[in-house]
Write a protein that binds this DNA or RNA. Structure first.
Ligand SMILES: NC(=O)c1ccc[n+]([C@@H]2O[C@H](COP(=O)([O-])OP(=O)(O)OC[C@H]3O[C@@H](n4cnc5c(N)ncnc54)[C@H](O)[C@@H]3O)[C@@H](O)[C@H]2O)c1
Ligand SMILES: NC(=O)c1ccc[n+]([C@@H]2O[C@H](COP(=O)([O-])OP(=O)(O)OC[C@H]3O[C@@H](n4cnc5c(N)ncnc54)[C@H](O)[C@@H]3O)[C@@H](O)[C@H]2O)c1
Lengths: 209, 209
DNA sequence: ATTTAGTCGCGAATTTTTTCACAAGGTGGT
DNA sequence: ACCACCTTGTGAAAAAATTCGCGACTAAAT
């Protein structure tokens, strides 16, 4: 199957499937059907099969999927068969929470550096990594071959920090600030907007009644 | 225009438009066209107009929209013309970061309580609110008329905490744990999955080259 | 060997969302 | 009053995503 554009929703679901399969492996499950995966993560079985079909044939008709094997395929597809170096800019409340989160390391995301401007924060240890001054951005990105920059600074400096990350050679940016960022076309940008999430809840609460 | 189902993507964009309009108000801008909004937040002008059209006619042909007026409409649509009481369960790294985030209060989200099981955390002050023991969940939800529960506990207890929130009468849940939660049909559930976000970046980095 | 009871892969149909394109309506200049 | 120029609102068209339906295949029981 030749496909050039994978729906983003598909990629997100693949990530969720992979986590569910990991859980099943821990429970000793060896084989699973699309219907069971679907039930486990709350989508339709056709959706599961369609998502997988973008990338190949991983199951056996009449039988289902081997959990461990499918998990391996998904990890490969998601690019998690290797490690990614990431840098966090902004060692505030959110940046610190992210830095200390074990779940990222478990999936192969390695925090190479955490930078800030605040002298009170510089020098603090967050897990294995020490908060360093922002001036080291370029150096750290280059020497550690950092691919992903995480932006957890106040909105007013988010674009500035982003530009520095892009100039330093980062290829992807995860932005937590509530600001629309401009990046060159070849840079992958994702926004995690926590306020928007709460506001969607607010909308649904207010609108559906 | 009679519409029963608003695309979720539309709601998310409305939230973003509203924030952009707020910024414009601060800059003293009085009138704006759909094209300028579109440019400001990175979508097409037709998209902006279509999103707004679900809810009414807010502009003037040939002229555009009055910033302040449109902002007011959007805040009303999003249910932000009132306050919402929220409760955070899990005063760990993420729960604390959320509790201390000023941006939520600015948009009318009022943190009524923060609960945890860890005796070391109970009693700590996070902003104006003190961390309290989990046993107060039912009491706090009911006495403060809490509508939204935020789940920032480890995955293994997330479903348990969710059930308690639902039983206490919460109407919507924002889940940060990497676990698929089951809730009754009339409960609004949103998942914020930070790992998935990083993994989508990983996928794009690995796949598009 | 044959039947029965599954399950996947995938084209086709359907639904949802986005984009297009233009009539309708408003402004400002002359 | 008229014209030249904008921008909205909205059906219609297009594109994207999801769901359906079934042929192909497997395993196990008889
Ligand atoms: N905390 C949350 O729950 C939350 C929720 C939604 C959005 N956000 C967004 O995430 C971002 C960070 O939020 P936070 O709560 O962690 O804020 P924070 O104030 O705790 O942290 C921001 C950090 O960035 C540092 N900083 C400022 N300018 C910098 C620069 N130029 N270079 C490097 N570091 C710089 C500050 O010193 C500070 O340590 C903000 O944009 C905020 O709007 C946070
Ligand atoms: N920190 C992050 O950046 C991050 C990123 C992605 C996902 N998450 C998810 O968010 C959740 C919280 O993460 P965290 O990093 O804040 O973890 P954390 O361990 O710092 O905090 C969890 C808190 O929940 C409390 N808790 C445990 N059981 C409880 C119960 N039954 N009732 C009430 N409180 C209870 C613990 O005492 C602790 O204070 C986890 O599910 C995690 O997977 C966190």
């Amino acid at each position: 199957m030749k496909v050039y554009k994978i729906p983003e929703a598909t990629v997100m679901r693949l990530s969720i499937y992979s986590r569910y399969l990991h859980q099943l492996m821990g429970e000793g499950v060896e084989t699973i059907s699309s219907g069971e995966i679907a039930h486990g993560v709350g989508v339709s079985s056709a959706q599961v099969r369609k998502d997988l079909a973008y990338f190949g044939e991983f199951g056996t008709r009449g039988v289902g999927y081997k959990v461990e094997e499918l998990y391996g395929h998904l990890m490969k597809i998601l690019g998690l068969d290797r490690n990614w170096n990431i840098i966090i800019i902004g060692a505030g409340k959110l940046g610190s929470a992210l830095a200390l989160y074990q779940g990222f390391a478990d999936r192969g995301f390695n925090i190479s550096a955490i930078l800030d401007v605040d002298p009170d924060r510089i020098g603090n240890k967050l897990g294995d990594v020490k908060v360093e001054k922002i001036e080291l951005l370029d150096k750290r990105v280059k020497e550690s071959n950092v691919s992903i920059g995480v932006v957890t600074v106040p909105a007013r400096v988010a674009q500035d920090v982003t530009d520095k990350l892009v100039n330093a050679g980062v290829k992807a940016i995860l932005n937590f600030s509530p600001r629309v960022l401009r990046v060159p076309n070849d840079i992958i940008l994702r926004n995690v907007d926590l306020s928007v999430n709460l506001e969607v809840l607010s909308f649904n609460l207010a609108f559906n009644k």
